[in-house]
Each structure stands twice: as C-alpha cells, then as structure tokens.
Design a protein around this nucleic acid. Structure first.
Lengths: 185, 185
DNA sequence: AACAGATACCTGCTCGAACAGGTAAGTGCC
DNA sequence: GGCACTTACCTGTTCGAGCAGGTATCTGTT
C-alpha cells in the first residue's frame, strides 16, 4: 500500500484534511479535489481486494459481465464497460493467458471472436462479489440507509453533470478555445 | 474521448443509468460503482483539460505544489501527493524533459536533489488553475452553494471511511485471510 | 571509527488507460 | 463484379500506478 507511512496518523480529522495534499488546487476546486482523493483511495482498496483473488483492477468488470451475460464479443464488452478497443484487446489477452477466459470464433462474423468465461473463472465469481460487498461496507460504514441513498444520489448527480457536459460540448470537446495550442516538444 | 459513441443518448435519466454499465456489480455495491463511474468521467475530463495545456494527469498536482511551495525534494513531493517514490522519479524526469522543472543538487544532502519549477512552467500556472475551476464548474453545475457544501461533506465522509479502514487494518492489509493464495501463474 | 539501519533515489517489471495507425472482414452502392 | 465505407480486432507508443530490488548517502549507536 502506498500511503502506509501516514496510516495511524491524523485520526481525529472529522473529514477535512484526511490526506493533507491540498495546495491551491483545493481552493480552486474543492469538490474536484475530493473526488480525486476519494477515487484514489477507492481504487486502491478495490485493487487490494482484487489482488488476493488474482485479478487486476478493471479485469473484474469484464468477468462480471461475462458471468452475467455469457459469451460476448470484444466490441460488446467495450460498449458495456464504455472502454477502449485497444485496452479490451489486451485485457482479454491477459485474462485468456491467466485461464479465466476463452476465445471462440464467432460463427456469423469471421472478424469477431466470442469471449467466454472458463469453468475456472466461475470459482472466482463469489469472491469477486464478496469483495464488492466488502468495499461497499467499508466506504459506507457509519452511514444510515437514508444517508447512503443520499450519498448515491449526490454521486449520480455529479456524474450526470459530467455526462451532460460531454453531450453539450458535442462530445469532441474542442470548444472554448482560449489557451493557444499547447507547447509540447 | 472514449465514450463518444453514446454522448447525446440517455439525456432524460435524472441520475440512474447515465452510462448503463451496471451488471450485478451495481447490486453488490451501488455506491462503489457510482464512485467508480464518477471517477472515470472526472479523470477523463481533467485529462482532457490538461492535455491542451501540455500536461498529463497527475503532473499538474506536482506543478501546483512546486508553484506554491517552491523547490522541494522528491521525497517531499511524494509525501505531499501521497504518491509513490518510483512514480515520482519518472514523473519528475518527464517534467524535466518537458522543460517544466529543473533539478538542482540539495546542498545539505548528497542523496537528494531539489526540484524547482522553471520560468516556462509559470506560464502554465494560470491555465492550470483555470482548468481546475472549469472542471469544478462542470461537475457542480446546477448545485446551490448549500448543495455543494453537502456534496463535499459526503465525499469527504466516504473518503474518511476508507482512510479509517486503512488505519484499522494496520495499513498493511494482510488481514482476514480466507481466500487461499491467489492462483496467479 | 565502524557498524547497522533508515532514507533518497533509481531501475526493472506488470498492468490499465488512452491515442495513432494498420489489417482483415463485412456492407452498401453502382 | 468492383468500389468506397464501416466494423472488429490487433499493434505500437506514452503515461500513471504499483511492486520488487539495487545503490548511494545520512544518522544513531557502540
């Protein structure tokens, strides 16, 4: 774990300054900064839980979809995860190499191949789901059901704002030109 | 942008199902999943804004600290960002190579070197801060000041939960043995 | 002074994420 | 049939993140 050196410290901070990395950044965007920190911690925890199982962060989502929906093509997985084709190619390759996934040629499209979970992978399913629950319990500990619902609503509202912003800007985001062409050698 | 193909779709969803990638994962951890999605979008936006400036996600935090605090050693930066020494080594190398940072031997410690922002980098400062503000506006658009404060509080509470969990588990997290040693070839 | 241990930094590796470019296969149109 | 165009997948690259290991250098103790 990366931030070991500070664990145990700062146990009193009710909320503010849990990690203390707030420069002017915090002033310019407290919520952005909070999202950033929360995401880092959350990701780290998820990675930690998954590593015990034998999966890397990101792979578990692929597996969950495969377990739930059965064999899919890579394109389908890309759409489901809202991911990248190139990333999916390599993720599937690694999952295949690890024995959690198998490839079979698509009978109706010679370009595509069907990705299906192996028997070995099904043994992981319960553990993965349990890890999700563990993480959920960790992150929501001390929250009443009402507070959880409200937290969820807040997160979704923030997410919705970003999704809408993407749509508004024509999803190519070359708007608001103001800072000349960056100078990257 | 990765998720272009879906932009413009699902414009009515008040919150739920903005991106539709919810398998059993969502059932097992709705808040975790929401954090995950929000973080992805947020990260993507930040990356997009920073790329125009000529920085990669993560580098901007280093620069902000340097701008604000002046020359620091790498270790200091690691602590400030709660990051990794190896990551910091390479990040600084790339920032140096890009001309945003300079290295100077620490007069009092031959092991260390002081990292300081270059004159060229100061031209970016305003743009970086402006990007933070832009992102903050995006993510909090439509929220009243009260709602923003509450959202911030929620995020910090979730973060605090994770920080505390790290402290509780002794920050080395080899607790709760239950799933034998992962079978990773 | 000599040693052990901590510290600061570097290098090697694997992984996901994203961008750019390339190939094979499918599809529509003339 | 021949053509352009799209789609599905792969490869190469850079980058952050994390783990493991190595080398200087500092520091406290004896």
């Amino acid at each position: 774990m990366t931030q070991s050196p500070k664990a145990g410290k700062d146990p009193a901070g009710s909320a503010q300054g849990a990690s203390v990395p707030l420069p002017a950044a915090a002033a310019g965007g407290p919520i952005s900064h909070a999202i950033f920190r929360l995401a880092r911690l959350h990701r780290m925890y998820a990675g930690q839980l998954l590593r015990r199982i034998g999966l890397h962060p990101g792979q578990e989502l692929v597996m969950m979809h495969l377990w739930e929906l059965g064999p899919r093509r890579q394109t389908d997985l890309v759409r489901l995860l809202d991911s990248d084709a190139a990333t999916m190619t390599r993720t599937v390759q690694r999952l295949e190499q690890a024995g959690f996934v198998r490839r079979r040629p698509d009978p109706t499209d010679k370009r595509a191949s069907l990705i299906e979970p192996t028997a070995a992978s099904h043994a992981l399913r319960r553990e993965v789901e349990q890890s999700w629950s563990t993480l959920e319990d960790l992150v929501t500990s001390g929250l009443t059901p009402d507070e959880r619902a409200e937290a969820l609503h807040t997160l979704e509202r923030l997410e919705h704002n970003l999704v809408e912003a993407a749509a508004d800007s024509g999803c190519e985001g070359t708007e608001e030109p103001q800072s000349g062409g960056s100078a990257r050698p």
